[in-house]
Design a protein around this nucleic acid. Sequence first.
DNA 1: CATTGACCTAAAGTTAACTTTAGGTCATAT
DNA 2: ATATGACCTAAAGTTAACTTTAGGTCAATG
Lengths: 144, 144
Amino acid sequence: MELTKDSYSIGEVAKLFNLSVPTLRYYDQEGLIPGLKKDSTGKRIFNLQNIDAVQMIECLKEVKMPLKDIKRFMKWNMEGDSTLDKRLTLFNNLDKQVSEQIKQLSIILKVINYKQRYYQQAIEDGTEKYVSQNKTLLNEIMKS
Amino acid sequence: MELTKDSYSIGEVAKLFNLSVPTLRYYDQEGLIPGLKKDSTGKRIFNLQNIDAVQMIECLKEVKMPLKDIKRFMKWNMEGDSTLDKRLTLFNNLDKQVSEQIKQLSIILKVINYKQRYYQQAIEDGTEKYVSQNKTLLNEIMKS
DNA sequence: CATTGACCTAAAGTTAACTTTAGGTCATAT
DNA sequence: ATATGACCTAAAGTTAACTTTAGGTCAATG
């Protein structure tokens, strides 16, 4: 993502992040983009900080943080130095949680790879009768 | 998870997977646990295959697959060899998608680590005034 | 000068994934 | 024999995260 200008319209931001315009309005309404300004005619103007906020929202959504928690974090941001410790704690927890998520996904990826081999073999055989049915997925997972 | 018996009650399965009993009933109702039987009094009896299905549901939920897609996959399972290619394709796609998810999460983890350092420094300084404000998150992310 | 396109608000509607409620069956423990 | 705990169904309710609708402003274009 190349940011050449220093302010963007809602439609431009929507395209940048592959979000709908109403979704961005909804985020603004919910207080997820603090400090977002409007011009004299009422149009939203996204500056680089606002775009950064949207980027952060996308990150936090990706790691399954609910919007209300994202909102709380954005509020802390606006409240200044008094919330520094809360924000550090938040990211310390996120660190653990996301590391755990990555581990989980790696295990799941192994399960997926097992299934790929299973179905490849079954297709070769023309049937899944002959591929190991007795082993449970659980066992495969535990072999991580 | 140690499976010692070869059949389990809904309550036991709920505990195994940290799901609520109504959630399991809901999954059954939605056709996500094909072949789940009931005893003479109407109680659900989960055999190892059913537990395997629940395990698979949990995996697929983790990688953000909607229940209706999970249901479709479970249906393919019941339809036998005629759906082998569909199922292989499914897992081939999942492979790509989950690999991508892991990459994304690794980038996000870096962002989180950056934020941890940022707030640690800010707390040391007593304020975030002095820590680099000019760099956008975007830049940090792109440095992956 | 009218129409098109990008924006706006407020409010209602939608969907997925559950959860809750209300009422009932059974086996077991007191 | 009654009360407790684990199960059952059917149906209604909830919540999050959007999306859609209806109606309106404003600048540029044919």
